[in-house]
Nucleic acid binder design. Structure first.
Lengths: 362, 362
DNA sequence: CTGAAAGCGCTTACAG
DNA sequence: CTGAAAGCGCTTACAG
């Protein structure tokens, strides 16, 4: 059978009785056995069960066996939520990023996860969708769960709402962009230097009329990259014309228009510096439709960039290193070895593949 | 200053006193205020604080104001971990996938997150790294935290370890591949039909010697796709030769050798069906180095596939739909409206972009 | 070696 | 409208 969305639904053979309704409807975690139940069944005290479950010494082999049998018979699994309530640390951290589905955040998340795992810590993950309110809502919900720490890729520019949490001991590290209006650890790429190097690379290949398409000013990374662009131009003694710059929302339609604009007229740009991966992709599409060859350097690496014709030259960030560094700092805050908020800048890497080495068309 | 890894570390101005050591070292969540503290300060009972915090009726405006003031003064935030212990449901679910950094799982994770969010539920995320032991370790750690449910992309093929948890009421949905040796909900793509359609597409464009490079048999998706390949060939009355098939580990080196092998000899394949996105990418690289034109259809879409020359024809899965469907089923299990384990198959989509429409070279 | 009591920070059920 | 008592499932501190 097939429903209206094209799904095909096949009932599986039912090899066991279907789950009783009370397991769903009831609370108490479906009436799971507790240490008390195990203790009763094994005929021992609660603390003895706790000792066995946690591998603490001081239990005779015979007692241990009896307890273990009760555990197995009942299918007991320790409730770590209760444990954590008593112990203080929840052994969980939260990662608030912009969009889980953005490929840039995959390696970053994975790196955070690996560090967390090495510390016996679980990871909550959530997207702010670039909405400051949603970021706050998510971050505070995680704090209410008493995560030990928070790695935040900020959407908003005012993080004072986190001040009480940080004071209360929630370790906090910002990534990619600094925190707004509070003093906090931040790990980010050298956006200024990376953009400057990328633009200088174009200049070194003979370009003077170089376009810049970037995100809205107000976004820290966008500002830094624009600053890098201006610095490279100034270093080369090239006065920047307004017509060469497009700053704003980076939806494909807008980027397309901006690129086409720059490529029109009597003195069009001969090269474009794209401010982030989404812009780069759109610009590639625009350039594919041009007869004239236009050089391109993009900020952020993109997959398969080397397979395109020409290969796409980029200023690459190391997303995994951002995540790893941030998570390591988080745990250093937690163990008390890091107290002063710092700003850590990771270097970017210029990867030349062809598009950035094209000479000016005129 | 710059350290050995090239990191630049800049101490931030310290606008507030650095966090006292006891906030890090101590447990008790850094001595955070509790409802009891709020009650004492406001001069009311515990339950009254609870009422205000939870917006329950039956508190005079005056009392409410006093409580609210105490909350603000103390920086109180309800401990949802404690709340959850008492209430039974943790309002959290876990997502165990193969690799957070794999772009295929980005949209899937995001879709699960959105459904969870709509249900006021937080999401734990973790990677199995294709290691069945790590999958089990992670899934059981999440169960110990008493997540309400689990979405699992299985790495292993024996999930009996989850049986006690499922019986105890942990909602469980498998995605991408079915559970092993237990009867459980599963949401996956129509791997068989997708592969069959893709191969039939190549046949329709005149190919007869068609190579198949896929993952190890034993992996469910790999087997289904191979079955689809065989079915399409059989439908066309083409006997498959062993030399046209490569099944096994899909690391780039091995895939490269396999592809080159197929393209050698007196009767080389004129088209290749690639069993997954990683294989496709490697095959593209191999084909780029060939003088002869070889047709290609890949399972799974890849980014920028349309910008390559020729564009890459693929059988696309809808990763977001997989995640969304799985999460929705999870919550339907939780609310009791879904009791019988089912297998839901989502259709795939053939996207023609050029590489699959090339005629045979001979 | 073993266990009863108190407590983690909340909510539930009940009584005033 | 308000609150004291009991309890969620564990661990801690202590006593036998």
């Amino acid at each position: 059978m097939e429903d209206e969305t094209g799904q095909r639904i096949v009932p599986e053979a039912i090899r066991r009785t279907s789950r009783p309704a009370e397991h769903h409807a009831g609370n108490r975690y479906g009436n799971r056995p507790t240490m008390k139940d195990v203790a009763a069944r094994a005929g021992v005290g609660l603390k003895t069960v706790s000792r066995v479950v946690n591998g603490e010494p001081g239990v005779t082999p015979d007692t241990e066996r009896r307890v273990q049998e009760a555990i197995d018979a009942l299918g007991f699994r320790r409730n770590d939520s209760a444990r954590v309530l008593r112990k203080g640390r929840t052994a969980s951290i939260g990662l608030v990023l912009e969009d889980l589905s953005d490929p840039f955040y995959g390696p970053l998340s994975r790196a955070v996860e690996e560090v967390a795992r090495a510390h016996g810590t679980l990871l909550f993950n959530g997207s702010s969708a670039e909405d400051p309110e949603r970021e706050q809502e998510l971050a505070l919900a995680l704090c209410a769960r008493r995560v030990d720490g928070l790695v935040v890729i900020p959407a908003g520019d005012d993080h004072r709402y986190l001040e009480p949490e940080i004071k209360a001991g929630v370790a906090t590290v910002f990534v990619d962009r600094p925190a707004g209006r509070i003093d906090a650890d931040v790990v980010l790429s050298d956006n200024y230097g990376g953009a400057r190097d990328g633009v200088a690379h174009l200049i070194a290949h003979g370009h003077r009329r170089i376009g810049f398409i970037g995100d809205m000013p107000g976004i820290h990374t966008a500002e830094e990259r624009l600053r890098g662009y201006r610095a490279a131009m100034e270093d080369a003694g090239i006065p920047v014309e307004d017509a060469w710059m497009s700053l704003g929302v980076t939806d494909p339609e807008r980027v397309r228009r901006a690129a086409e604009e720059m490529l029109r007229g009597p003195a069009p740009v001969t090269a474009i510096f794209a401010g982030n991966n989404r812009v780069t992709v759109t610009v590639i599409r625009v350039l594919a439709g041009q007869t004239r060859q236009v050089a391109l350097v993009g900020f952020d690496d993109i997959e398969l960039a080397d397979l395109l014709q020409p290969g796409v030259t980029v200023v690459a960030q190391d997303a995994a290193a951002l995540g790893r560094t941030a998570a390591e700092r988080l745990f250093r805050q937690l163990d008390g070895s890091l107290v002063t908020p710092e700003r850590v800048e990771l270097p970017t890497r210029l990867i030349t593949r062809g598009s950035g080495e094209l000479p000016p068309a005129d």
